[in-house]
Design a protein around this nucleic acid. Structure first.
Length: 431
DNA sequence: TCTGGGGTCCTAGGACCC
DNA sequence: TCTGGGGTCCTAGGACCC
């Protein structure tokens, strides 16, 4: 059966989740912040209209946000993750097949019906999610993923202009050409700021202009990735649904510091925390890793001089135990650490990851069993009594001031309750 | 004072091998 | 005066995404 692609995109997802459970937010502008409460990563329409960009540092926009009486919230990923699961489950009921593309987006395939018919399907889906989850979605439909994205963008633009409910089906040629001539080239999925600049220099400003470029030029300037995008815009599908998520190849755990860290001891503690968390995550996923890279950086804005460095190593065996990674992170810090820099961020990356095959870790069978039981116990205690109730001393003691002191601590001061995943944080209805 | 965190893919170039 | 022609593997860097 012929099929078409649809993209379901939750509108201002994090803001919408917050508004489901706190109706007072529905009448107010809302911004949701990144970890550390540093940047704005989700904005209600009012906040967008005021010009606050995605990723904007909140301190720079404090006045604007205050002036419009915006609610400024810390992010609550537990809540968003659970809401995302609900949306995906309902969308799946309507789909031939579904790809969980991101926390707030899903690609799906639908039967290739007439355009008015597809429009009905999209509108029905939107009503259903709104009624049963409370989150408004947009739906864009087209013959390829990239054109479904274009349709979704168009649905957004039309809705802002007061023309539609937030659903749109990509038309056939020649109307499609007319639509693409109005899409700025930088708005195409797969064209970021660097390629946008290259294309502008060539005098190409619209999606229609881009897809008309000769293949060899696109291939040489933008690799096969760019070429696929052009073909998709011409209606030839090159990107399939990814029905099973491929196993991850790397895992990064990193954080910016609340303040600045200069001492080696401070960095050591931070890296140990990250290594420990990464190993914990590995165990959660039933995987083991062998490669580890540590990196430290002073950040890029102001505050010179800039320094950034990293170093990688391979352990003697695949593992998911914390201690080898913590030890390695300490060793790898030595050659890259430089005195007198004010470090802003540190992290570890694990690579060479594969599924754990039970009882194959190393020759030291007895030792391994003991360590495995220890890690099981650690995970159980942390699940029961809260994250990081126990851990390695190298990663600092909970609540104690290690070398990192307060500069480490992550601020998340305005997080809303985890309404849907914690019994003690359920919303209360009063009659 | 204050600027997120986590991923993927592709290419070029070097090391090494036969 | 002259520098093979393939391969593979690895890494760094650049591009993109949400």
């Amino acid at each position: 059966m012929e099929s078409v692609f649809a993209l379901v995109d939750c509108e201002n997802f994090y803001v919408s989740c917050e508004r489901v459970f706190d109706p007072s937010l529905r009448e107010r502008p809302v911004a949701v912040l990144s970890n550390n409460d540093g940047c704005v990563i989700a904005r209600s329409e009012e906040v967008k209209a005021a010009g606050v960009p995605m990723g904007a540092p909140v301190f720079k926009w404090r006045e604007e946000l205050d002036a419009m009486d915006a609610a400024v919230l810390s992010s609550n990923y537990t809540l968003y993750g659970d809401m995302s699961r609900r949306v995906h489950a309902l969308v799946e009921e309507e789909a031939l097949a579904l790809e969980h593309y991101s926390i707030d987006e899903a690609f799906l395939t639908l039967p290739d019906l007439s355009r008015p018919h597809l429009q009905q399907v999209a509108d029905r889906l939107r009503r259903k999610i709104l009624r049963r989850v409370g989150v408004p979605i947009r739906v864009g439909i087209g013959p390829t993923k990239t054109l479904a994205k274009v349709a979704d963008e168009n649905a957004k633009a039309r809705k802002r202009a007061g023309w539609g409910p937030g659903t749109y089906v990509c038309p056939d040629e020649p109307e499609r050409e007319e639509l693409l001539s109005r899409v700025p080239v930088g708005d195409i999925w797969g064209i970021g700021s660097a390629y946008e600049e290259t294309l502008h220099e060539k005098g190409v400003v619209s999606a229609a202009g881009f897809r008309a470029l000769p293949d060899p030029w696109i291939r040489s300037e933008m690799t096969v990735v760019g070429l696929r995008t052009a073909w998709e815009l011409r209606g030839r599908s090159c990107l399939d649904l990814e029905l099973v998520r491929p196993d991850r190849k790397t895992m990064i755990r990193s954080r910016s510091f609340g303040g600045r860290v200069e001492s080696k001891a401070g960095l050591r503690e931070a890296l140990a925390k990250h290594a420990q968390r990464a190993a914990e995550k590995l165990r959660e996923e039933g995987r083991v890793a062998r490669g580890i890279k540590t990196f430290i950086t002073t950040k890029r804005f102001g505050d010179p001089p800039y320094y950034s460095n990293g170093l990688a190593a391979s352990l003697s065996t695949h593992t998911a135990r914390a201690a080898p990674f913590v030890k390695a992170s300490r060793r790898l810090l030595e050659p890259i650490y430089r005195d007198r820099y004010r470090y802003k961020k540190a992290g570890v990356m694990l690579y060479d990851i594969r599924p754990a095959r039970p009882h194959q870790e190393s020759l030291f069978g007895r030792r391994r069993c003991r360590d495995e039981r220890l890690m099981d116990a650690v995970d159980q205690i942390n699940r029961r009594y809260g994250a990081r109730s126990v851990g390695l001393a190298a990663a600092g003691l909970p609540g104690a001031d290690g070398p990192l002191g307060r500069s480490w601590s992550m601020t998340r001061q305005r997080r809303s309750p985890r309404y849907t995943t914690r019994w003690d944080e359920l919303p209360v209805a009063t009659a």
